[in-house]
């Protein structure tokens, strides 16, 4: 849980930049990491994190304390990151369906992997996450990297808890299948 006093949030909402900086210091780490893991790119993550905090600063006056500040921040971050990923995907015209790939493993998985760019400086987690569709990726990042419960993820993404469960199941099925075939780096046993 974030250790941010309600008074600090209210001060920041009135435009107090010092109070807003305190919020920033306590939350920028997870905002940046979620943006990085969902987009798979540190430069994009920086731009998204900037947009998240500008959005938060402008909308803080409307924050009603019904959800936690952290949940609200996760929601803004994931929404902006997903919008970015989907926009970039459309621009690249990447149309591989990973669900189709799993349905036709002999041809589909190679097609899916072939669409994945492999810059040299990518870490293993980036390469693993890149094969997932953006919605599944967001759920698996919030669960496996951020350690959120299914209920917290459902609230942050504003989706049904069974949708969270289904996306996590599909994501792990995809990751297991791709690593078994050696298409993405991992345990090959």
């Amino acid at each position: 849980m974030l250790d941010i006093a309600r008074a600090t949030i209210e001060q920041a909402a009135r435009g107090d930049i010092g109070a807003f900086e305190e919020i920033y210091r306590k939350t920028s780490g997870f905002v940046y990491n979620v943006a990085w893991r969902v987009t798979g790119n540190r430069e994009d993550a920086e731009e998204i994190a900037q947009n998240v905090f500008v959005t938060v600063y402008r909308k803080l006056a409307g924050f009603r304390f019904e959800a936690s500040l952290k949940t609200w921040l996760y929601r803004i971050t994931v929404n902006l990151a997903l919008n970015h990923v989907k926009k970039v995907s459309r621009a690249r015209n990447v149309t591989v369906s990973y669900d189709d790939a799993l349905a036709h493993p002999e041809t589909g998985l190679e097609a899916a992997a072939a669409s994945v760019q492999e810059p040299a400086d990518r870490d293993r987690v980036e390469r693993i996450l890149e094969v997932l569709n953006p919605d599944q990726r967001a759920c698996i990042v919030l669960r496996s990297i951020e350690g959120m419960s299914y209920q917290e993820i459902a609230q942050a993404l504003n989706i049904n808890i069974n949708t969270v469960r289904s996306r996590i199941k599909r994501a792990r099925t995809t990751l297991s299948a791709l690593q078994r075939k050696g298409i993405i780096e991992g345990v090959t046993s």
């Binding site: 905002v31 940046y32 920086e46 987690v125 990042v141 792990r172 297991s176 345990v187 046993s189």
Partner: peptide, 19 residues
Amino acid sequence: AVRARAVEPLQEAERAQAP
């Protein structure tokens, strides 16, 4: 297999500092 391929690699993910 699920643990090794789809769970543990992500739990060990590096956490970066915001620039």
